[in-house]
Structure formats: structure tokens, C-alpha cells
Write a protein that binds this DNA or RNA. Sequence first.
DNA 1: ATGCCTTATTTCATAAGA
Length: 263
Amino acid sequence: MRLATWNVNSVHARLPRLLEWLAEIRPDVVCLQETKTSQDTFPHAEIGELGYAVAAHGNGRWNGVAILSRAGIDEVRRGFPGEPGSPGTQARAIAATCNGVRVWSVYVPNGRSLDSSQFGYKLEWLAALRDALSVQARATPPLAVCGDFNVAPTDDDVWDPAAFTDATHVSPPEREALGALLRIGLTDIRPRALKGRQPFTYWDYRAGAFHRGLGMRIDLVLASAAVAAAVRDAYVDREARKGKAPSDHAPIVVDLDLAAQSA
DNA sequence: ATGCCTTATTTCATAAGA
């Protein structure tokens, strides 16, 4: 099974690129973030023509997540119990079972700045996600939590740690919140970089950051033991960050051999 | 980079992103 995750920065603005990418890469399951549209305005028809069933969760202009699947899409759940709001609950998590794997697409709050109330919200949201997933991790072993975590796990996951002094995405509290999530039994599947040493997944739109290699690894695939053992390949598709009207994030593609696991 | 690009909406300006 080919599993992918991509922060598309608007599914409408990205629709031509997304359709082209789906046709070329042909993932079985795709987690999308920052779809920036509501469930009823999601481009179901265009994506459906490529053979995908769609489960979307959105509240209009901001956030928005979705799962596309041509490997079944059952037990769809939007949000999770105990999910914090800011102040209202935002569309940041959706889960579905695809080919026996419980797949989550998550868009972790940005945090804005270390002294912002949004930063507290980010930490609370990650803690609540851990609590919700710790139940799932016990009940359903094959689990893949994919998305934009807005946390670079280590200093090696940003182009220059010195550029991130007192910044979000690298601070100890965020990394600890991510660490607590991993400790429930998840593995950070570090993808291959198609160019350079670091598998960055995000580059700022401005100042030629992509072409200068000024990236960050903040999109992650967190896998339970059964899924982690099934990984045959994982890479960041930086090609999708090139060309006309790209997202500022690149997709991660993970190839799983689940049959070998159950055998 | 103190948002130098990009997005959707309350549009010729704003909020948000990381």
C-alpha cells in the first residue's frame, strides 16, 4: 500500500497540481492538510474520477483536513474526544480505516510565537492528541498518524538551528509534546531526501527559500510497530514543490508491504 | 525577516501561515 501525506495549502488552489500528482504517483491513501474548504465544497467529483473515496473535515477558510483512499475508507471520524479549541474546535484531525490501517490526517496548530496564547493551544492540542491516540494504539495496532505537525523533531530538521532562536517549531516544550506522542508506541518514519542530506518537507515561499535549500522537516508520518515494520520505502517528493503554483509543503510518500506483515 | 509570498474572505485590506 502506498500511503502519502501532503499539506496542500488550499485544495482548490492546488487542485490541478493535486490531480496531476495523484495520477503520476498513484498513492492508495493520501492525507491532506490545510484544505481550506468545508466538507460540502471539497472537490469530491474531480478527485473521485481518479478512483478515490473522500472523507473531508473543514470549517471554511482556515485549516481543513481530508483522507483520500482507493483502499477502502471506513469508520470515518472527524476530530477526537477532548480536542481543544481556540476558542472553538477547528478542523485539524480526521481518521479512517483504510485496508486495515487506522489512518489519521492531522494539522497541528502553528503556535505563532512562544509567548502567544496560540502556543499554549498547540501544546494542549498535542497532549490531547496523544491521549486520544494512546487508546487507539492499544486497540488497533496498525496505526499511521500523518500530517503537518508544525514541529521539527531535531535541530538537524531545520536548515540552520541558529535562525530559530526563540522560535516556534523547535522549542523544547514542542519537542517534548511530540516525544510524548512517540512514547505511546509510534515511530517517526524518516523519509529519504531526493536531493541533499535532509528530508525537508516545507520551504517558505519567499526569497527563493526552496532553491536555497532553506527548509524544515515538519510534516511527519508516525507509525505503530506493525506499520513501521511494513515500511519498504519512504521519501519526500520534492518535485511537487517545483514549478507553477506549488504548495509550500512537499508530500511524503511511504510504501508499505502489509501483506508480509500479516503472513 | 520584524512575513521579502500565498491563501480565502469580511477584498483594492486583512489575517494567517512557519
